[in-house]
Design a protein around this nucleic acid. Structure first.
Length: 440
RNA sequence: GGCAGAUUACCCAAGCGGCCAACGGGGGCUGACUGUAAAUCAGCUGGCAUUGCCUUCACUGGUUCGAAUCCAGUAUCUGCCA
């Protein structure tokens, strides 16, 4: 989706000029958790443009919010004049980095190939490919795909000490767990190290960024470049984004917040941000928006003085949703949210507005329902519930609403005469989970 | 290659022949209270044609009136030995 208008959109982004340099700004935004020699890195980033990279492994059909943090770090550095190299892990995605919990199931080559393409398109949306420091896109399969196992062991393996490798935090914890770790996943850090070396040689890349959970893999690269090329290159690890209440950031209803609108609707995406807790909203503005230090300070005041207005949450949701889905789409979901969450009566909303709002929600049509329907049928058809058992439970709990009216009888039948404008139902589960049914 | 042990629902984890759709905790959902926030308290948390039935305790087969629980084989993992 790289278009001219995308470049226009990107051209409106800017770093905060009140900072002495980009390093200072990254620190203030809370984006630096660990790094190699801090003074030298700050110096490098404050000086002549450098080339830097971040890798994205195709382990799913879309990037998610964790990746967005990395994309924004890439973009902020690009805005500071440096050249980003975005790496898609066509090779590393075939292996999978070790996770804390358990060994991964390998995906097929075809699957990974497909995901490489979708990730590529997603990444292109966030970086500028124009101008002196236009981004470069690479795939690590290009330099590993043709490498024989023997060459790999002789040319690369020799530089890696097993003692160092097993001391990496993630490897050590997996070794100690009941699960253990396969040779495949154990080798992941070698592949990532190779990437840094390769990019240093091809594009003079001297900095790798990534999540702090990737720290072991990042240093694997800096060490390899030092051993082979005698050069001290840099690594920067961003902190894990956490919620103040201890829950995992970036999930809604147990599902990841994906950047792909097919996998997470813009409406759901927007709602996710609007629901950010007061205690977290300022941190989120720093990480996920280009608002300046001064602007964020104003929102901090607003959260402190009149939290019930939720202005910081609304601003955050607007900024991030338009970054990912565009302003036009964002305006549509805001209008939908206003109509459906409004205090007013649903049947006072005019038909076009209601229809537009509904189209942003999980939707069902009469084709999926009979002429007679119960609240249980409607909850399941709109996918607000996975099963009738679970829908019945919600009704029993008192959390089921049809057109803003609580429904307490799971057997009660509804038909067109109960619908808004004779054809629409707004189905709700709990306080804020909405679905839409069109029976026209 | 040898020996010993493990495999339970989203995660951790109990159960060791019937009282097991399976204790407990985490997570999640819903309600009360609210500001589409947090905290707190309460209920719920396999499916369906819901007073009943069906599928589930790694997999396949067996013993038994009856198995998550016993036996055999298979797979995967862990530890020790080689």
């Amino acid at each position: 989706m790289k278009t001219v208008s995308n470049e226009t959109f990107l051209s409106r982004q800017a770093n905060d000029p009140s900072f002495e340099n980009i390093w200072q700004e990254l620190q203030w935004r809370g984006l630096v958790h660990v790094s190699t020699d801090e003074d030298k890195l700050e110096e490098a980033l404050a000086g002549e443009p450098i080339n830097y990279y971040c890798g994205f492994d195709p382990t799913a059909a879309s990037l998610h919010l964790g990746h967005l943090v990395q994309l924004l770090v890439l973009r902020r550095l690009q805005l500071a004049g440096h050249r980003p190299v975005a790496l898609v892990g066509g090779a590393t995605g075939l292996i999978g980095d070790p996770r804390q919990t358990s060994e991964r199931n390998l995906n097929t080559r075809e699957t990974v190939e497909g995901w490489v393409e979708t990730l590529r398109h997603q990444i292109e949306h966030y970086l500028s490919f124009e101008g002196d420091n236009g981004a470069i896109m690479v795939n690590n399969l290009d330099w590993t795909g043709g490498l024989s196992a023997l060459d790999f062991l002789r040319d690369v393996g020799k530089h890696f000490r097993v003692g160092t490798m097993i001391r990496k935090e993630i490897v050590a914890s997996r070794l100690e767990s009941d699960e253990g770790i396969s040779y495949t996943e154990f080798s992941y850090q070698v592949l990532q190290g190779m990437d840094f070396l390769e990019l240093y040689r091809r594009h003079n890349v001297t900095l790798q960024t990534g999540g702090s959970d990737q720290w072991g893999n990042l240093t694997s690269g800096t060490e390899l470049v030092r051993k082979v090329e005698g050069e001290h290159v840099h690594a920067l690890g961003t902190p894990l984004i956490t919620n103040s209440d201890g829950t995992k950031f970036g999930k809604s209803e147990g599902n990841a917040i994906w950047l792909n609108p097919e996998m997470c609707s813009p409406y759901t995406f927007y709602q996710f941000w609007v629901n950010t807790a007061d205690a977290d909203v300022i941190d989120r503005l720093k990480v996920f928006t280009f608002l300046t230090r001064e602007e964020i300070a104003e929102y901090e005041q607003k959260v402190a003085n009149e939290p019930f207005r939720r202005e910081a949450q609304r601003k955050l949701a607007w900024e991030v949703t338009s970054l990912v889905h565009g302003e036009e789409q964002t305006q549509r979901v805001i209008d939908a949210s206003a109509a459906l969450f409004g205090r007013g009566e649903l049947n006072e909303i005019d038909e076009p507005t209601l229809e537009a709002a509904g189209s942003e929600l999980p939707m069902a049509t009469s084709a999926e329902l009979g002429s007679k329907m119960t609240i249980v049928d409607l909850l399941v058809a709109t996918k607000l519930e996975n099963s009738k058992s679970s829908a019945r439970r919600t009704v029993k709990d008192g959390g089921a609403y049809l057109n803003n009216v609580k429904i307490e009888d799971p057997e009660e039948q509804f038909n067109a005469s109960d619908a808004l404008h004779g054809k629409y139902f707004v189905v709700r589960r709990g306080r804020r989970n909405l679905g839409f049914v069109d029976i026209s």
